[in-house]
Amino acid sequence: MSLYPEQSTLKPKDNPSRGTVIRQALAAAFPYTIPIFAGFWFLGITYGIYMNVSGFSFWYPMLMALVIFAGSVEFITVNMLLNPFNPLQALAMALMINARHLFYGISMLDRYKNAGWKKFYLIFGMCDESFSINYSVKIPEGIDRFWFMFFVTLLNHLYWVSGATLGGLLGSVITFSTEGLSFAMTALLVVIFLEQWLKDSVHISELLGLGISLLCLIIFGADGFIIPSMLLLLALLTLLRRRMEYPADTDCTTGEAA
């Protein structure tokens, strides 16, 4: 069951034109993407500069930002492009670093349902930030939720591509006086985490997410903690399934567990 039942069919009484629906969705989506703009421009420009000083023209960061659209893996790809050709390693690395997206997809199965042609793009552009906003934001009444989620994804994508391109063009010419700006991304996730906390009546999931990830970070280090964290979280949530009740969806507790 979706958290926003029937919202897609909720439209103002006077049956606005398609253009109005689209414009309203864009206007509603934009404010939520402002912190992403700060974070993505900072990181994107840094990434573009990194590619520039590694000897690549701006086409590389621009096109990679466009077709890959996953920050951390793009940084690592730079390194792979400078090393001997190894396509299977490239594939395996992308799968491992981005394995967390599997969790996003599972969480979004319902929410992206019935999105029509937009569904492909919504899934294609489901980076950490787009997922976090599209999952957590309570979309205002009367706003078409698929257009809303589409614009969140599109704006984030544009910020990332433009940032990477700009960095690639300007190279090492820029000097930053913006130290610490990228904290906007951390702050965004802290806020989204808090919202999820306030929404859930049981906090097992949130506490496990923080605790297990921190534990795995200490044990496995920054480059290898995501996969063990995911496996442990999956195992523990499965074990605790009966203790976690989600009133919005009674099937959860009466299904297999009974």
């Binding site: 969790f103 957590s136 906390w197 919005a248 507790t253 297999e256």
Partner: peptide
């Protein structure tokens, strides 16, 4: 049902993981 359960239970854990990330 198990996947539906995960769809509800995972986001809290994922957001916690992303903060640490």
């Amino acid at each position: 049902p198990y996947i539906r359960f995960l769809g509800k239970a995972l986001p809290g854990a994922v957001f916690g993981m992303l903060v640490i990330y």
